[in-house]
Amino acid sequence: MLVIDSLEKRYANNDVALKGVSLELRAGEVVGLIGPSGAGKSSLIRCVNRLVTPSAGTIALDGVDLAHVSGRGLRRARRQIGMIFQEYALVERLSVMENLLSGRLGYTGFWKSWTRRFDGKDIARAYELLDRVGLAGMENKRADALSGGQRQRVGIARALMQEPRLLLVDEPTASLDPKTSRQVMRLIMELCAERGLAAIINIHDVVLATQYLPRIVGLKAGEIVYDGPAKGMDAMVLTRIYGDEDWTAITRNVAAAEESDEAAEPAAQRSTRSGPADAAYSLAATAVMAQAVTP
């Protein structure tokens, strides 16, 4: 689905962000991208969605080389890529619904969006996604009236409005408290599984990454130094990625998180979560919420 081959990125000041990075994602596969600041994680994501132009290499999404396509071809290719930003990137003065519908700009066009001439199917889909991410009934709230966790959920729903095949997620939990971070990661993983989405998630929290992401790619100085299962994240691998440090506490937390998830799995399968914060993570609860909303 996504094949990155020998990707390089050199900026105008001669800083080299990526050095021959090669990476493959199958359809529906979710990968966590970790590494120290300056390792090239954000540059990799920005090259994939062409916010920056690679210096060399190829980025093939379903056979289309994003590294070299331009104009109308690039716009068509970007429709297949949903982006979730660290700082949410919402238009603060617009409502939640208007922010969601902006995710259809690649299909609707600027002028129809400017005059609020959105397709009825797009509006219905927006209501459906608001239900799914736990924001039913909040469509008319302004974005600047939302909490950080709510804003991130709007960002997730907006990305899904594009009906993408690939999600690029840049630090989705960096501005969130620990509980909300877990809820957001759980939501992203559930949505990817439900819709068969592939995703690259740039994340600093190693414990959170290993708890929710089955495959981890570690970058250091623009090169991949680890690509393997989350359970392989031991002290030796962490040292390879981040450098010398006492990783005892981290590896202990990683092991504890794995044990906790294994113990909680049967309960999760029974969908026994309760309360407004977790309602979005149960499909049954979401269906009940949807009945209470009239578009």
Rank of each mutant, 00 (worst) to 15 (best):
V3E: 15
S6P: 07
L7K: 08
Y11L: 14
D15P: 04
V21W: 00
S22T: 14
R26K: 15
A27Q: 13
V30Q: 03
G38T: 02
C47N: 11
C47G: 09
N49A: 04
S55L: 04
A56I: 02
A60P: 06
A67R: 06
A67H: 05
H68E: 11
R75I: 08
F85W: 04
Q86P: 08
E87A: 13
A89G: 10
E98G: 09
E98Y: 07
N99V: 11
G103M: 02
L105C: 12
W111M: 14
W111C: 12
T115G: 10
R116N: 11
F118G: 15
F118L: 15
F118E: 14
D119I: 12
D122T: 10
I123G: 06
A124D: 14
A126R: 11
E128F: 04
L129W: 04
L130H: 06
S147N: 09
G148K: 06
Q152I: 08
G155A: 13
A157H: 05
L160G: 01
E171S: 09
E171G: 12
A174M: 03
M185W: 02
M189S: 11
L191M: 13
N202V: 15
I203S: 03
V206A: 04
A209M: 06
Q211P: 11
P214C: 05
K220G: 10
D227Q: 13
P229V: 00
M233Q: 02
A235E: 09
L238Y: 00
I241P: 04
E245A: 14
W247H: 07
I250Q: 09
A256K: 11
S260F: 12
A263F: 09
E265V: 07
E265T: 10
L283V: 10
A284E: 12
A290P: 07
P295G: 07
